[in-house]
């Protein structure tokens, strides 16, 4: 096992762990294997994106270092999802810029393989099977078909490969959504409320995945309302309030600050 992959806690929830076993067993022939993951930096300069009703992002700037695991938190409507969607290229900013290792996020051809975005609600072709969805996106990413097998295996989706997505549970759909994002193995992963309205077991499973991705060197940004999630996962916390960045620091300093309580009460 590569040294940067920690042994996972949680027994059967170690899905990401299984990927290592799978690859070590000689099945993994995907080019960008775990050992070759190259983490990226994100630079955000004076980013603004406003909606009607003065909601959105006011000019905010920050930099994300390689391999960080950042929790973006704030009240509903604070601009968390807008920030993530703008970084992922789902939105175009009104002004300012997002650079991924020096390349503007608007230059899709250059950054499309560097960022993977997992939306809050899985955006899948839900009338089709899990395998169909993965195959479609694998073809669009021009990844070898063997990668589909790897993802199905890594995310424990083999028993559901022929299941129609709309018939799957919420947790499984989220797993398929994450698996699809991981097809191209991007070094930056962005999750919009990855555990929102999921049960305890699925939440723990996703936490394990996030830890695994982080341990493999990926840069991760996620939004959350759960203090336990932020405390156990994040290496850095960013707070947005009414579109402005009001806190940027470690989880410890966040939980000891006066900013913590009002957000979680909301």
């Amino acid at each position: 096992m590569p040294p940067y992959i920690p042994a996972m806690k949680g027994g059967h929830h170690g899905i990401y762990h299984r990927r290592i076993d799978y690859c070590n067993s000689g099945n993994c022939n995907y080019q960008t294997d775990l050992a070759t993951v190259v983490p990226m930096t994100i630079e955000i300069h004076n980013l603004t994106k406003m909606y009607a009703g003065s909601r959105g992002l006011l000019p905010i700037s920050f930099t994300v270092e390689k391999g960080e695991l950042i929790a973006v938190i704030g009240h509903n409507g604070a601009g968390k999802s807008t920030l993530l969607k703008t970084i992922a290229g789902w939105h175009l900013p009104d002004s300012g810029s997002v650079l991924i290792d020096g390349d503007p996020v608007s230059d899709r051809k250059k950054v499309v393989r560097k960022i993977g975005f997992v939306p809050e609600l899985p955006s899948l072709f839900d009338a089709f099977s899990v395998e169909y969805n993965l195959t479609l996106f694998a073809r669009l990413f021009r990844t070898p078909s063997s990668r589909i097998e790897e993802v199905l295996n890594e995310f424990d989706l083999l028993p559901f490969r022929y299941s129609v997505v709309r018939n799957l549970s919420k947790g499984l759909r989220q797993r398929v959504s994450i698996g699809r994002t991981l097809l191209a193995d991007p070094p930056i992963l962005i999750f919009d409320e990855p555990t929102s309205s999921l049960d305890f077991d699925i939440t723990r499973e996703i936490h394990d995945m996030l830890r695994g991705f982080h341990a493999s060197g990926k840069t991760i940004i996620f939004t959350s309302h759960r203090p336990d999630e932020i405390r156990s996962l994040a290496t850095r916390v960013i707070i947005l309030r009414k579109g402005l960045l009001v806190f940027d620091g470690s989880p410890d300093s966040y939980f000891s600050s006066k900013d913590a309580e009002p957000i979680h009460i909301s």
Partner: peptide, 8 residues
């Protein structure tokens, strides 16, 4: 939007 996150 997900499709537009691919190289397409």
């Amino acid at each position: 939007l997900s499709l537009l996150q691919t190289p397409m």
